[in-house]
Design a protein around this nucleic acid. Structure first.
Lengths: 112, 112
DNA sequence: GGATATACCTTGACAGACGAGGTAAGTAGT
DNA sequence: ACTACTTACCTCGTCTGTCAAGGTATATCC
């Protein structure tokens, strides 16, 4: 992992919601997907991932159920709720705003 | 303050360094400047600000000295070091990368 | 005298991320 | 049969940055 996690902190839950909007999924797959989408630059730690799932479920943004795998390890699937969809849109709008703000705040005028 | 601080978390020190690259300054002024640049959307809490100063100084990114104000409250001025300049450039590059990455990770394809 | 602005600082609590550990089932090679 | 690896889940304790709440002191305005 080449990107410092502090910079992603605060976006973990939004990233997970974004993935679940595409399709129902489970922890291991979501993490793999993040790894691939980031070109190998970023990967959630498991403790972070499962902690985020717990919070998201507590807040009613996702629901979960055990898949009925007949082979291989069991999987817990997650599905986004209507509330989660709403939260995703709000978080995304916040990100757009924060991005613009940080761009303004960390820039220096006329310095090569 | 309308932006949640969690989204800025991890950029506080870079924001301070960016300000100090423009000119030597002191805590109160830096915070006012952030408030104004952000259009009143964001303001550091004092505990956060002074905590960041302490870390920056411990790491050798800034130095400080007491101003000799003849009137009004005393001020502790901060100056960025060569190491701080280097760190700023690195942090800024990291931000460009993180920004691109988050954009990729929180986007959903073809959803209105 | 009292309120407000400037200007600094500290302590304790909280929340998210992480390191390090664990469980369990299937697959591949020797 | 044994060993190693992959898939897949989970938890506990620690660390770090932020914040609420408190404090000190000087100067100005009404």
């Amino acid at each position: 992992m080449s990107i410092t996690a502090d910079l992603i902190r605060g976006h973990t839950e939004t990233i997970i919601l974004a993935h679940l909007l595409q399709r129902e999924s489970y922890g291991y797959e979501i993490n793999k997907s993040i790894y691939e989408k980031s070109g190998g630059q970023y990967e959630l730690k498991e403790a972070t991932l499962y902690g985020a799932f717990r919070r998201l479920e507590e807040n009613g943004y996702i629901t979960s159920y055990w898949g009925n795998e007949t082979t291989g390890a069991r999987r817990r699937y997650y599905r986004i709720t209507a509330l989660g969809d709403k939260q995703y849109r709000a978080s995304r709008a916040e990100w757009e705003n924060a991005r613009r703000l940080i761009d303004i705040l960390i820039q220096t005028e006329a310095k090569p």
